[in-house]
């Protein structure tokens, strides 16, 4: 697949460019859809320690009125992608996504989308042994080749490449002060990992093909099923995966009987919008489909 190596340029991304461990890109001029999304990236630390990981924030700024797609795009679309292109002694981990929004089109098509600015987090890891075998290079220079499918009335493909450079060290690495805001913003938007969700926060039950999720005193709940290659997914997420109140009942396809877990993101509100006590929460849910477990095993 041809990838366009691009020169880092300034413009509106200047804040993300300064100092250490930074990088941004401009879309390639000839590709449809490229100019509708601007991509930039920044590392959380000023350097990367051999054998360890550094978080990378990849920011997508989407043109007003357009949307891109979550890891499970829903009925249509295709998810945003980030491809690492760099030395073999480093690699990217999984992407941590913020909760998406529901987007309904004529024909009862339900998509899970991102609008405005969305920051994806991913971990960059240097394999110490491979790094040593490569002669302990002092710098890790790599590109993140990003790809998106962006839609409004019509749909376009776009891509953009971000170049980053980080010193590799065996000493202490310090935080990149210019990245603090981006990481704090990104982490606020990312659902709390299921391992860290307190047991009393929600209840989950899967019985006779129906997933029941309840959150004490929730005023509104929305569930986003994670991708499932086994097709273990809701039958009718359009009408069943979002409701006022403290309970969702979501029928699943028969394929749910073939998997060990149902996974997704649950967004719930407490209080009423506009009122002083209103709050919104996003958590990952992971529901084991065993007869003897009505609640997921959590800390």
């Amino acid at each position: 697949m041809p990838r366009i190596q691009q020169i880092v340029s300034a413009c509106s991304l200047v804040l993300w460019l300064v100092a250490t461990g930074f990088g941004a890109s401009q879309p390639a001029p000839a590709m449809d859809g490229n100019s509708l999304v601007r991509v930039s990236a920044i590392a959380e630390y000023q350097a990367i320690r051999a054998g360890e990981s550094v978080s990378i924030a990849v920011r997508f700024q989407i043109e007003d009125g357009w949307h891109t797609y979550w890891k499970n795009p829903g009925d249509t679309g295709a998810e945003m992608r980030i491809v690492y292109d760099g030395p073999e002694w480093a690699s990217l981990g999984e992407i941590h996504w913020p909760a998406p929004k529901r987007y309904v089109s004529p024909g009862d098509l339900l998509d899970f989308v991102h609008e405005g600015t969305v920051i994806l987090l991913t971990d960059l890891t240097v394999d110490a042994e491979a790094w040593e075998a490569a002669g302990k290079p002092e710098t890790l220079a790599f590109d993140l080749n990003c790809e998106w499918f962006v839609c409004k009335e019509i749909c376009l493909l776009g891509e953009g490449s971000v170049s980053l450079e980080l010193p590799v060290t065996t000493e202490t690495a310090y935080k990149n002060r210019d990245a603090l805001q981006a990481f704090s913003e990104a982490r606020r938007a990312i659902p709390r990992p299921w391992e860290d969700v307190p047991e009393q926060m929600y209840r989950a039950k899967f019985e006779s093909g129906v997933l029941t999720l309840s959150v004490p005193s929730a005023t509104r709940m929305t569930y986003f099923p994670a991708p499932s290659k086994e097709l273990a997914l809701p039958v009718d997420a359009l009408t069943e995966a979002e409701a006022k109140g403290d309970t969702l009942r979501i029928r699943y396809r028969d394929e749910a009987s073939t998997v060990d877990f149902l996974e997704g993101v649950l967004v719930f509100e407490r209080g009423q919008p506009g009122a002083g006590n209103h709050s919104t929460h996003a958590i990952e849910v992971r529901v084991p489909l065993r007869d003897d477990a009505s609640d997921p095993p959590r800390e």
Partner: peptide, 11 residues
């Protein structure tokens, strides 16, 4: 990297 990065969605 692609496989790892997009693994969940890339079935």
């Amino acid at each position: 990297g692609l496989l790892v990065a997009g693994i969940a969605a890339l079935g």
